[in-house]
Each structure stands twice: as C-alpha cells, then as structure tokens.
C-alpha cells in the first residue's frame, strides 16, 4: 500500500542537482609545489672578466606550449647564497621575487639572518626587470654594474638522463654513443644576475648555492 503512495508522490527528478556534482569537484586539487623545484644552478665569470654571473633555473622540461603558460610563483623567493669566508654559511644573498609581471632584485646584501628563513632585504633593493614573455626578445635591466634577467630560456642542461636511470635500475650496462639529450628542445624559467666581483668578496674563492623559499 505504502509503495503505491510513494510512486505517486515522488515522480519528480532529483538526480541532476548541481551540488551532488559539485561534491566531486573538490576531489582532486593538484598538490602544489612543483613551481618551486630548482632544476639547475650555474656560476661563472662574465663577458666582462670583472663580473660573476649566477643562473638559477626552475620548472624544468617545459614544452614550447607549456612555456607560453609558465609563470614564476609570486609567493616564492629565489635566493642566491654567497659564502665569502669558507664556512658554508651565507654572508651575502641576492634575492629575486616576482610581482605582477616583474622580477624584483635585492642585493648582494647581508641577509637579516642566515639559514632556512629569510625576509626581503628591502634596503638592498637593486633593480627590477620585466619578466620576458615567451617568444619575445630578452628584457635586461642594469644598475650599478649589475645586470638582471628573468623569464623562459632554453634549458642549458644536457644529459642522457633516461639511460643513466636505466643503468641505475640494472636494465642497461652502459651509455649509448651517441646518447640522447633528455632536455633537448625543452625550456626552463631562468633568473640570471651578473654582479661585479668587488660586490661579492673581490678575490679568492666563494661558495654559492641557490634556494627557493615560500612566503608564509
């Protein structure tokens, strides 16, 4: 008896309610973080022998299409660390922070404190440079003998990474000749800074490394 009553009563659709669907929408947010992965770091004498060039690359293996859409994460500081006295503790930093399409540079300047936490050394403001758009000519800013660039570039790294992994995994015994450059044809997001040697110790050896740090 009851069943008949229900049949009459609930002949209305209840299926497609938007929010039943919406419940699934929140399921699979990608876990963030890949935008901060450093792919490479370079330090070498500049075209002007009185200068040192630092290169920090993030977001590797960008296809040309992905390069069009790739952006620096504006909550991330890319910090080049310089140790001038050989104790592997930074005495100077160069900080790069993207905001609204520009990369802002601070330093070389002594950090507020060494280690895992940084604050922006706004007193050491060096310059800012428009982040070069994919496919456009490199935009370069200069100030007080320093030069600055930020934007997509060809990945300068070259390595038969897959064969290396195959050797490690025991599925190959040696490299091929010629090898296959995994990074051929791919791009990275680069930050390039050139500074006079006099600003980072003048002579002798320095130690350097790069860090990415996220705003809290």
């Amino acid at each position: 008896m009851k069943k008949t009553k229900i049949l009459v009563g609930v002949a209305v659709i209840t299926v497609a309610g938007f929010f039943a669907i919406a419940a699934d929408h929140i399921d699979a947010p990608a876990v963030t973080g890949g935008t901060n992965d450093i792919t490479d770091f370079y330090a070498f004498q500049g075209q002007d022998n009185n200068n040192i060039v630092f290169v920090a690359n993030v977001q590797g293996l960008l296809s040309p299409t992905a390069t069009q859409n790739a952006k620096f994460d504006e909550n991330t500081m890319i910090e080049i660390n310089i140790d001038t006295d050989g104790d592997a503790v930074e005495d100077l930093v160069i900080q790069a922070i993207p905001k609204d399409g520009k990369m802002y540079f601070f330093g070389p300047v002594a950090p507020a404190q060494a280690g895992l936490m940084s604050t922006v050394r706004t007193s050491g403001m060096s310059s800012s440079v428009g982040i070069t758009a994919a496919g456009a000519n490199a935009v370069v800013a200069t100030n007080a003998g320093k030069s600055f660039f930020a934007g997509p570039r060809d990945d300068p790294f070259f390595f038969d990474f897959d064969q290396f992994n195959a050797i490690l995994a025991g599925t190959a015994t040696g490299f091929n000749d010629p090898g296959t450059d995994k990074f051929k044809g791919t791009n990275v997001l680069s930050v390039v800074v050139e500074v006079p040697k006099t600003m980072i110790g003048g002579s002798g050896n320095i130690n350097s490394w790069v860090e990415t740090k996220r705003k809290q």
Partner: peptide, 18 residues
Amino acid sequence: GPDFSGNYIQEDQMARPA
C-alpha cells in the same frame, strides 16, 4: 606597490649538478 613583507621559508636548494 608590491608587498615584500613576511617570512620566507625554505623549500628547495641546490648547488652542484645532479
């Protein structure tokens, strides 16, 4: 103007390749 306040905490670092 851009806001540069706040603390930045390390997530990744690198020096020599690979």
